[in-house]
């Protein structure tokens, strides 16, 4: 009994399960694949994943507020297109940044207005804007060849090296830290949680839930725009279909990190650990020489297992929290999880 309550305390610490899984995976791959722990290779694949990390931050806000944003992937792609285009026109790099971010903000605003003011289902609205953004990029790349800018300062946004890491990675770290602080330590962040737990009780306790959601969608859009700028700067070329499907990777990462799609539960770093897990998994499989054709299957399995374990842990901690008298017959003695 004693051990069990210690155990339940340990696993009820937020994010412990995914973090443990991540560490185990790293150990596994470093034993199985020789080149896995080489700093250069780590730096490389993390650098490639930066745009995803950045949209996950915004997505976390939206999901915790009880919503969903499917448009982030294709908005990121479109923003990459618009910023690169402006840079190719010969405008200074900061104008390109502003244009890219504004593209994202515009889509965030569109989502926010339709969802919070016209009260349309968030899934459908962002599915719609996903198509609009993806289609716009197709039209744009059809009209203009976005094959690269001459402006070196635009490219340096992402590829400067500082203390051994690229500026992309540094920017991502700053964004993660700042937005995590906002989420966990600011009144606005607290309202995000309250809104996601229950819109009606939150409203009755005096929170402007609409405005809270509105801002969450703006953040999501704006960060997708900024992620697009970084991607454009890094690739220095944009084609139709760029970053399509990023939203699914982002959602999968968030869910793996234990962020409840029902809202009200999670944090930025947990979603990031989820993303690190998925990217590292991919890298590890690659280095082990496993057929890339089965990567998606493995990824899918990991998501399923992760979610089932997370669910089990959540129920387990519910059952064994000090006060709860709820006894459901299945986890009566905790056999579901602890065995």
């Amino acid at each position: 009994m004693r051990n069990q309550s210690k155990f339940s305390k340990l696993i009820s610490i937020e994010g412990v399960v995914i973090l443990t899984a991540f560490v185990l995976m790293v150990i596994f791959f470093s034993l199985k694949a020789d080149s896995f722990l080489i700093p250069d290779s780590i730096r490389y694949y993390i650098n490639e994943a930066v745009p995803i990390f950045i949209i996950i931050v915004g997505l976390t806000f939206v999901i915790i507020a009880g919503g969903i944003d499917l448009s982030i992937g294709s908005v990121l792609g479109l923003s990459a297109g618009t910023s690169l285009m402006v840079s190719m026109w010969g405008w200074p790099f900061w104008v390109a940044v502003i244009v890219g971010v504004s593209t994202g903000l515009a889509f965030g605003l569109l989502n926010a207005v339709i969802i919070t003011i016209f009260k349309v289902n968030d899934f459908i609205v962002t599915l719609g804007t996903l198509y609009i953004a993806a289609g716009s990029l197709t039209v744009l790349t059809d009209k203009v060849q976005l094959t690269g800018t001459e402006d070196a300062s635009f490219q340096r946004i992402s590829d400067l090296s500082f203390l051994g890491l690229t500026s992309s990675i540094w920017i991502a770290i700053v964004i993660i830290v700042v937005f995590e602080l906002v989420l966990l330590k600011s009144p606005f962040g607290r309202r995000i949680f309250a809104t996601g737990i229950g819109e009606v009780p939150a409203l009755i306790s005096g929170i402007n839930t609409q405005r809270t959601k509105f801002v969450a969608y703006l953040i999501s859009g704006g960060l997708a725009g900024f992620g697009g700028v970084l991607l454009a700067s890094h690739l220095n070329s944009v084609q139709s279909g760029l970053a399509g499907g990023y939203e699914l990777t982002a959602i999968a990462s968030a869910v793996l990190g234990g962020i409840s799609l029902a809202g009200g539960r999670g944090s930025v770093w947990r979603a990031i650990v989820g993303a690190l897990f998925l990217t590292t998994l991919n890298q590890g499989l690659l280095l082990m020489g496993i057929d890339p054709l089965i990567f998606q299957i493995v990824t899918g399995l990991c998501i399923l297992i992760g979610v089932i374990v997370d669910r089990g842990v959540y129920k387990f901690t519910l059952t064994f929290s000090t006060q709860t008298r709820e006894v459901n017959s299945r986890s009566r003695d905790g056999e579901v999880v602890s065995s």
């Binding site: 949680f193 009780p201 539960r265």
Partner: peptide
């Protein structure tokens, strides 16, 4: 159950939510 409590919140958070200004220190919770 439906309108009153924010079920996932701790007592601390449930008490402070309607007036977060009360628990700010240099702008942060």
């Amino acid at each position: 159950k439906a309108l009153g409590i924010l079920s996932e919140f701790s007592i601390e958070r449930s008490v402070s939510i309607s007036n977060l200004v009360n628990i700010l220190k240099s702008g942060w919770l």
